[in-house]
Simulated scan of single mutants.
Amino acid sequence: MLRTEPFFLFLGTSTGKEMTTGNLYIVAAPSGAGKTSLVNKLVETTPGVVVSVSHTTRSPRPGEKDGTHYHFVSMPTFKAMLADGLFLEQACVFDHCYGTSRAAVSAQREAGLDVILEIDWQGARQVRTLLPECASIFILPPSRRVLYQRLMARGQDSHETIDRRMAAALDELSHYAEFDYLVVNDRFDEALDALRAIVIANRQCRETQLERQRRLLQTLLS
C-alpha cells in the first residue's frame, strides 16, 4: 500500500548486489469483471511480476494446463495439504476448493519477484491477517448490465448457472471496501495502466527502496 510518510524516490536499479523481497498483491473481482485478462496482460508487459499458481479441486476448463493455470488436485489431496498447513489461504467456491501454497509464494518473493494472488474476498482476509504488508486491489465492472453480458459471453454455462454466478458476483462486490485500491475495468487499456501504476508506485515506497538502495544511500550519506 502506498505510504503517506516522506520517502526516497529512486527510479533506477540498485548499484549493489542486494536482493529485494518482492511485494505481494491480492487482486480480487466478481466473476466476469475481467480480472484474469488484466492480470495476465500485466504480467506479460511488466517485468518482475508473476502470478501465484493456485491449487484447485475443480476440473480443467478447455485450454487450461496443469501447473500453468492451476495445480489440479483431487479433494483428498487438497484436504491433506490443508491439514498439513501448506496453504497461505484457501476457500471453497461453487463446490470446488482453491488454495495458495505458502512455500511457493515465499520462494518467489525471496527471489525479488512481485507476486499476485488472484483470490476472492475470503482468501484476501486470510492473507491480510498473516501478511498485513500486502496490497489489495479490487476490480470493478462498469455496470451490472456489462457484468451480466460478460458472464453470458463465455458461452460455457447454462442460464441457471449464469444467474447463480451473477448472484455470487454481487455478493463479492459488497466487499469492495476491504481493499486498498479500486480499479474499474471499463476500458481495458486504462484499467491495465492503473494496475501497472500501482505496482510501479509500490516499488518506490520507502521500505522497499531502503532495502534495494541500501548501498547507494550509504555512499550518498558517507
Rank of each mutant, 00 (worst) to 15 (best):
A103T: 12
A103H: 12
A104D: 15
A104F: 07
A104E: 15
A104L: 11
A104Y: 07
A104W: 08
V105G: 13
V105H: 11
V105K: 12
V105S: 13
V105I: 13
A107P: 12
A107N: 12
A107D: 14
Q108C: 10
Q108E: 10
Q108P: 04
Q108R: 13
R109Y: 10
R109I: 06
E110M: 12
E110C: 11
A111Q: 09
A111R: 06
A111M: 05
A111W: 03
A111V: 01
G112L: 03
G112K: 01
G112M: 01
L113H: 09
L113R: 02
L113K: 11
L113V: 04
D114Q: 02
D114N: 08
D114E: 01
D114K: 00
V115Y: 04
V115D: 04
V115M: 07
V115W: 03
V115I: 02
I116E: 04
L117A: 07
L117I: 06
L117T: 03
E118L: 12
E118K: 06
E118A: 11
E118T: 08
I119L: 11
I119D: 09
D120F: 04
D120W: 00
W121D: 13
W121V: 10
W121Q: 13
W121K: 08
Q122F: 13
Q122R: 15
G123A: 08
G123H: 04
A124F: 05
R125K: 13
R125Y: 06
Q126M: 14
Q126T: 11
Q126K: 09
V127R: 09
R128S: 15
R128N: 14
R128C: 15
T129M: 13
T129G: 11
L130T: 10
L131G: 12
L131Q: 14
L131T: 15
P132V: 03
P132R: 03
P132W: 06
E133P: 01
E133Q: 14
E133C: 05
E133S: 15
E133G: 14
E133Y: 08
E133N: 13
C134H: 00
C134Q: 08
C134A: 08
C134W: 00
C134F: 01
A135I: 08
A135P: 07
A135E: 14
S136A: 09
S136W: 02
I137L: 06
I137S: 03
I137K: 00
I137R: 03
I137N: 01
F138C: 07
F138A: 05
F138E: 08
F138S: 07
F138N: 04
I139M: 05
I139D: 06
L140C: 15
L140A: 13
L140W: 08
L140D: 15
L140Q: 14
P141S: 06
P141E: 01
P141N: 00
P141K: 01
P142T: 05
S143K: 03
S143D: 11
R144K: 08
